Amino acid sequence: MSTVQMLGLGGVILVAAMSPGPDFFIVTRSSALSGRRAGMACAAGIAGGVFLWSVVSALGVAGLLAASAVAFTIVKLLGAGYLMLLGVRALLAARRGGYEATADLPADGPSAAAAFRQGLLTNLLNPKVAVFFLALLPQFVPAEPAVTDTISLGAVAALVSLTWFTVLANVVGALRGLLARASVRRAIDTVMGTLLVAFGVRIVLQSN
């Protein structure tokens, strides 16, 4: 890939990453409730998912998923179910309350390891990500791509995603003085839980 191609790909990936979606809300919630470390771990998980999707798309494997209605539906339902599960957990946490008025790690917030898994699974179980890369990567992949070309594509996509979501995690983490208040935590869980459930429902209702 030339430098111009890398910059072009990175720009498109950045715009897509900045669009509010499941990844955005997962990182925001992790950072707000558990701090920068969890938020950045979640960002790393998302970047890992982006790398895998971009590589399999460049190899053409994701094309099989997009071409198979059954496989696409299975992944879609798994992803929707996972988002709704996270959303319901957040709503239950808001209902239970019991938040401590401290800036320390809250009991109901995800640990760094859990945040990484949430970021990775949220991205990998979103078939729309596969469709996005299948539509995008042919414009950047050579006619006969080498292994280095495929790895470069994945690395650029993952690095851009990691950079953006790490910035987001640090911005949200910097506001922890405000976010440590129990009323704010409850509001975050309520809003994020509702949005995650809504995203899950939307994925189920969307056609292929």
Rank of each mutant, 00 (worst) to 15 (best):
M1G: 14
S2P: 15
M6K: 04
M6T: 08
L7M: 11
G8I: 04
I13P: 02
A16Y: 00
A17Y: 13
S19Q: 11
F25H: 12
F25Y: 14
V27E: 02
V27D: 07
R29I: 03
R36F: 02
C42Y: 06
C42K: 08
F51A: 07
S54Y: 03
G63Y: 15
I74Q: 03
I74V: 15
L78M: 15
G79Y: 11
M84D: 09
L85K: 06
L86C: 04
R89C: 02
A90Y: 03
L91P: 13
L92D: 02
L92P: 00
L92T: 05
A93F: 01
R95S: 05
R96L: 09
G97Y: 14
T102H: 09
T102P: 02
L105I: 09
P106C: 10
G109S: 04
A114P: 10
G119V: 01
L120H: 01
L120R: 03
N123E: 05
L125P: 01
N126K: 06
L134Y: 05
L134T: 05
Q139Y: 12
V141P: 11
P145A: 12
T148E: 07
D149I: 06
A155R: 10
A155N: 01
W164Q: 00
V167F: 14
A169N: 08
N170Y: 07
A174T: 00
G177K: 13
R181S: 10
V184D: 06
I188T: 12
T194E: 04
L195Y: 08
L196Y: 09
S207R: 08
